[in-house]
Simulated scan of single mutants.
Amino acid sequence: MKQLGSVLALAIVLALGGCARSPETPSKDADAAAPAPTPTPTPTAPAAGAAPDQGAAAGSDAAAAATGPARLDGYGPVALGSTLEQVQAAWKEPLQGEVPDDYCHALRPQGAQADDVVFMIEGKRLVRYDVRNDRIVAPGGGKVGMSLGQLQTLYPDRGDVTAHKYDEKGHNLRVRPATEGGALINFEIGGDGNVTAWRVGQTPQVDYVEGCS
């Protein structure tokens, strides 16, 4: 009987040992099913040929005007209000034009084209300058060839439209100074609606229609 009891006890131990299992190791298939980490997006550079910044483009004309020779306080190295001697010394190159004993006359840089800048001297001082070409930009961006609408965009708050003395279809845009006592700009606009000339000067000289008169 002892032998039979021992055999039964051994059988029970073996049966219990077969039921015990070690923890399962994750399979390779399980690793493949796990979601992969989401990659961080990499910033991309603007595509070649992309449209330029519109704000920068809009400011290009203003920048060109700011660095050009025409200013509200003068032209190139000369300043409005300078004496005739100061103008001649500052310009350095010869200035052509009669220098009569009368009160007003015009000076033109030697060798300049007919439509280049002309200086008005009155009372032996520079009081105004005139331009009749599209190569020189007026203070604020206006120039010969522009329409009245373009000028009014450039000078929205200070431009007054006045009648042209000789052209019934033409007119002027008189741009008032931003500060009291400053110079004015007068744009002459022909019957076709485009600027033919402009001038910068003090009052009353900026309003002279026929040169010194």
Rank of each mutant, 00 (worst) to 15 (best):
A64W: 00
A66P: 00
A66K: 07
A66W: 00
A70P: 05
A70W: 04
R71W: 01
L72A: 04
L72N: 05
D73K: 06
D73A: 12
D73H: 14
G74S: 09
Y75T: 02
G76D: 11
P77I: 05
P77S: 12
V78K: 02
G81N: 08
S82D: 14
S82V: 01
S82G: 11
T83F: 09
T83H: 11
T83I: 12
L84Y: 07
E85Y: 08
Q86P: 03
Q86L: 01
V87W: 05
Q88E: 15
A90W: 00
A90T: 02
K92Q: 14
E93Q: 15
P94N: 12
P94M: 12
P94K: 14
L95T: 10
G97A: 07
G97S: 10
E98P: 11
V99W: 01
P100E: 05
D101A: 14
C104Q: 07
C104F: 06
A106E: 09
A106N: 09
L107C: 04
R108N: 04
Q110W: 06
G111N: 05
A114Q: 14
D115Y: 01
D115Q: 12
D116G: 13
V117L: 03
V117N: 00
F119C: 07
F119Q: 06
F119M: 09
F119D: 06
M120H: 12
I121D: 00
I121C: 02
E122S: 12
G123S: 10
K124E: 15
K124L: 13
K124P: 02
K124Q: 15
K124R: 15
R125W: 07
V127Y: 05
V127K: 13
Y129A: 04
D130W: 07
R132W: 11
D134I: 10
I136F: 01
V137G: 01
V137H: 01
A138L: 04
A138K: 02
A138H: 01
A138S: 13
P139C: 07
G141I: 06
